[in-house]
Design a protein around this nucleic acid. Sequence first.
DNA 1: TAATCTTTGCAATCGAGTTGCAGTAAAAGG
DNA 2: CCTTTTACTGCAACTCGATTGCAAAGATTA
Lengths: 136, 136
Amino acid sequence: MQTEEEILKIKKVKNTAVRTVVLRHLLSQEKAQSLKDIENALAYTDRSSIFRTLKTFEENKVIHSIEDGSGMTKYAVCAKGCNCDPKDLHYHFYCTNCDKTFCLFDVPIPKIQLPENFKLKQANMVVKGLCDNCNK
Amino acid sequence: MQTEEEILKIKKVKNTAVRTVVLRHLLSQEKAQSLKDIENALAYTDRSSIFRTLKTFEENKVIHSIEDGSGMTKYAVCAKGCNCDPKDLHYHFYCTNCDKTFCLFDVPIPKIQLPENFKLKQANMVVKGLCDNCNK
DNA sequence: TAATCTTTGCAATCGAGTTGCAGTAAAAGG
DNA sequence: CCTTTTACTGCAACTCGATTGCAAAGATTA
Ligand SMILES: [Mn+2]
Ligand SMILES: [Mn+2]
Ligand SMILES: [Zn+2]
Ligand SMILES: [Zn+2]
């Protein structure tokens, strides 16, 4: 696992106090985090600063966002080497019981055969149901 | 293609003026519609009435919703026989250029091998890129 | 150091979605 | 029919996640 400093260096994002603490928080969580999650965890950091940090991170492929249908966009740190290209596509799982969203890096995504002349650029793939913990 | 009346009858949703016109509009459009799209198209029908109609339709599997990441939930009429079960899963395409979202009923969705003990219930699968019209 | 650019915090704003409520319409009961 | 009950509709107000303007603070450059 890389440190915050290493990640920001690789992605060419200047390191600041807010960025370090936001990225550290994201790295420490197994579930994808919403702006509010982060705001709650970092009590003394302003929401709009976190918001802009997330935008900067996303633009620079430090993190990617997930629309899981919960009403709040979630964010997760990109895997090492990820460029948010079609090759980096992966499913996300949203547990409708415990409200946890996370990347399914280990589930292979098949090649999607789009109609003639369509061009694939990105995707937001969210699979919903019960996680192992809630499916008992 | 079924008429509005037939669909509502099959799905056991009472037919009303607003419901008929909303469903008719959805059937007439090839792209999935947002609440605002419908509001704009039906100038004399109140937004909250349309909103509640969409909720009723969704609860009764007349339509399904799509979170395409555009900030507005889109709605599309369910295919004949659809029950919004995992078997009815299909991809959606969101064109980042012309902002059009639609169901890809013809693209097969492979079986998703979830981790041990996870239960699949639904999914929101949105593929993004350029549609044939914009990819020139 | 002075000038310039970037980041941050605060407050205000935006807008999609949602709800309370009262009026209207439709269904049920007699 | 007429009355009672239930469902639907329109309007206005509100919620809340997301976003922005602006000035202060911090970092970088000349
Ligand atoms: Mn992910
Ligand atoms: Mn669809
Ligand atoms: Zn769970
Ligand atoms: Zn297009």
